[in-house]
Amino acid sequence: MIIADKKPIEEIIEEIKDYNKILILGCNECVTVCEAGGKKEEEILASALRMYFLNKGREVKIDEVTLERQCDHEYLEEIRDVVDQYDSIVSLACGVGVQFTAEQYHSTPIYPGVNTCFLGATEKRGLWTERCQACGQCVLARTGGICPISRCAKRILNGPCGGSTKGKCEINKEIDCAWQLIIDRLKALGRIDEYEKLFPLKDWSTDRAGGPRKVVREDLQI
């Protein structure tokens, strides 16, 4: 899922302090799971903002809505009838949701309420780690299910590099060397001979190197 982290409230206040009718728009998907922008976080932010403005002697209208997703037209339509009542929206969705909301509602300024971080997994409550960089050409079949693109600091395809020490990466002793993990995994699977095969040059045009990307599925389009 997409992992996001909460933006400091003071940063959000700085952006929206001049508005009088604010809609806090939560998202019920990834940001709910990583406890950054779901219904609960939206309620907390709305309550904190209401109190902040009251404390400044201003009665600012702050309402809350949680959409199932902000990255789909259907769900964004749910606020079509009420959006004109507000002079700004704080979206607690990931960067995709914020942008999609902004595209749908041109005349209302949208502000992000979270920092979108990466594609990752919940290791335990309160700890999320990166697992995918959406390079567009998955290599996991050859690496025992461990991604060298997202988990190796250098994104190398024929590792490890000389900076791997006792299974850890040279950039940070707390980070596992992805290639050490791959070798250990291939050994455990009895596939270590595959490690000997060199990876060919990777086509990075499907990664960010090729500019903004899109997936076109003509079989699904009418």
Binding site: P8, I9, E10, I13, I44, A48, L49, M51, Y52, N55
Partner: peptide
């Protein structure tokens, strides 16, 4: 932390 930030 939130209460400190909003001045309560």
């Amino acid at each position: 932390k939130i209460l400190n930030t909003i001045g309560i």
